[in-house]
Nucleic acid binder design. Sequence first.
DNA 1: CGGCTTTGACCTGCGC
DNA 2: GCGCAGGTCAAAGCCG
Length: 289
Amino acid sequence: MVVVAAARREEGKETEKGRKKWLQLWWLRPWLRMQLQQLQLGKNRRKGKKRLGYGCGCSDVIAAAYAAVVSAKEEEEESSMVEGVAIMAMAAAVVVVVVFGKEKKRNENSSSMDNYPTQFPTQQSSSSSTSFRSRHPSHLSSNRIGITPVFGSLRGGSSSGFSELNDEMRATTSHGDAKNEMKPGKKKENRVRKPRYAFQTRSQVDILDDGYRWRKYGQKVVKNNKFPRSYYRCTHQGCNVKKQVQRLSRDESVVVTTYDGVHNHPIEKPNDNFEDMLNQMQIYSNFWS
DNA sequence: CGGCTTTGACCTGCGC
DNA sequence: GCGCAGGTCAAAGCCG
Ligand SMILES: [Zn+2]
């Protein structure tokens, strides 16, 4: 399985009339689908992994983009591992490419999972750093992106993301099949099949619009964290996907998003429409001018 | 009026 | 059992 995710950073915008502004990502889906096709073409040429891009470390939108792609792809192969992650940055735009491979090397201590963070570049483009405002200038240097798919319910998948923020990540993913992922000795397979993905994104906008409709059903303060955790559920009938969004107290420019489950329905946004995409690009065009 | 957020109460698993 | 901490419910309210 190959997954390509694309996303783009949006300027802070703060709030308009007290309402938080959503980070719009859905409009990139047509482009994203093209990238996916290209990747699969290259794969047919049996030329190994693709490693796209270079770029900056800003990753505001990985979570939403990834979720949008993962739930939209037609053939669902559950036992897949991340083979590569690349990020391209064009001015203020951030493009995230996630390449998933088959499960072949899944029993190798999940090494690929622990290695792919190294592929993230660490420097940040100057244009996008302006959107961080001057509130946390010290944190800009340690820009580390995290995508941590949590295979708590997939077979044999105990994955740990990035070492720095592991504690917080564990806190978000410690429910449900927690016993499976925390204990190396206990390998439970074919249990529940709901994947659980956790992401760290660096954004001042903690509401990511991945194209799906979410209804907030709870907010809780967690221990040792000064920011509350928000609970969302997909509003689609019969779809039981949930997600949690939490901002780290250690580094409040990082937002951790945990997706629980895979949507069983398509996205509801008017994607696949080039006019909409062009409109959005015009809206955002001032960022890379 | 419909859809969503807010928010305290309730539930549940777990450790002592 | 008890209490804590995290997850969920649901009534009330907000907003276009
Ligand atoms: Zn859904």
